[in-house]
């Protein structure tokens, strides 16, 4: 028995097993189930175990699928660009312009205040603000900037992306701020001594060292946006669709197999996207 416990292999296995079991039961099993169901057949009110490719055939045979996936990637890309610029700027300011640690922490906490309310509420509060007779339009009209209310402010791609940026920028700020705080200040001094100007320091020192943070933030934002459906539904007034909405519509109409097939394709495309992202930065090496 004693010998058994001393076996390093065994104790290693025992130590990972709790995590492995949790992942197996709560992550792997559901995914396997979804894969299985995606091959089933559905009638209006029942699903029948089967092994057929109908769901995938319909999915890949429909032009709407491509359009919707294009939309999903479009939202992800644009949201990513905005959250990155805003998130990086905020983190940079916090990390390098605020001198005292107390203030850094205090201001960082200020950034998180909006997150104390539910994200649905934060999203929906844009609707009266951006509406035809909303605050934005009435203000602009009273200033004389516009004569007619701007229709594209609400229920458009603009409002969807605005809400996404609003909801997810913090997910970019946190990891970038974290990596920036760990940059050795003497590296910046060295760069300055070697004659680099501010832009050069930013480009050649800070950005390369912040890459892992950027990458983690990117993964957060991209997966959140690609998996979202409620923001798109509310902010586009149900007029645009992303993959999440396709799945939620299918579920609402009891088309579980078709929803599963779409979910699997979405999962695959998100994994591929992350795989490609990870080719650029080796997070583990740089953390």
């Amino acid at each position: 028995m004693k010998k058994l416990l001393e076996n390093r292999n065994l104790s290693g296995w025992l130590m990972v097993s709790p995590l492995a079991v949790v992942l197996l039961v709560f992550l792997l099993m559901p995914i396997i189930l979804i894969v299985i169901v995606s091959f089933w057949r559905a009638t209006e009110f029942s699903i029948i175990p089967a092994f057929e490719f109908d769901n995938y055939e319909f999915l890949f045979g429909s032009s709407v699928t491509y359009k919707v996936f294009y939309n999903t990637f479009k939202y992800a890309l644009i949201t990513w660009a905005f959250t990155l610029v805003i998130g990086f700027t905020v983190a940079y300011y916090l990390a390098f312009h605020i001198r005292s640690l107390t203030w850094q922490v205090a201001l960082f906490l200020v950034c998180t205040i909006p997150f104390l309310t539910s994200n649905i509420i934060r999203m929906i509060s844009w609707i009266p603000f951006l509406g035809r007779n909303g605050i934005a339009n009435t203000t602009l009209m009273s200033w004389g900037v516009i004569d007619e209310p701007l229709e594209w402010l609400l229920f458009s791609d603009f409002s969807v992306i605005l809400a996404f940026v609003h909801l997810y920028t913090l997910f970019m700020v946190v990891p970038i701020f974290n990596t920036m705080m760990r940059i050795d200040k003497s590296l910046i001094e060295a760069a300055r001594d070697a004659g680099a100007n501010g832009a050069q320091i930013l480009w050649n020192v800070i950005i390369p060292l912040t890459k892992p943070g950027i990458m983690i933030g990117t993964i957060f934002v991209v997966t959140l946006v690609m998996g979202d459906f409620i923001t798109v539904r509310f902010m586009s007034g149900s007029q645009s669709a992303n993959v999440g909405r396709l799945i939620s519509n299918d579920i609402a109409l009891l088309q579980y197999p078709s929803a599963s097939a779409t979910a699997i394709v979405l999962l695959a495309s998100v994994l591929i996207t992350i795989g490609i992202l990870l080719r650029f930065v080796d997070i583990r090496k740089e953390l």
């Binding site: 559905a42 009638t43 429909s62 709407v64 919707v68 669709a241 396709l246 519509n249 088309q255």
Partner: peptide, 19 residues
């Protein structure tokens, strides 16, 4: 009502929303 072609209709409806 619910149609005999309900499933087809639902798929078409999905396309309408996504269009």
């Amino acid at each position: 009502s619910v149609m005999d072609e309900n499933q087809y209709m639902v798929r078409k409806w999905n396309e309408f929303i996504a269009a």
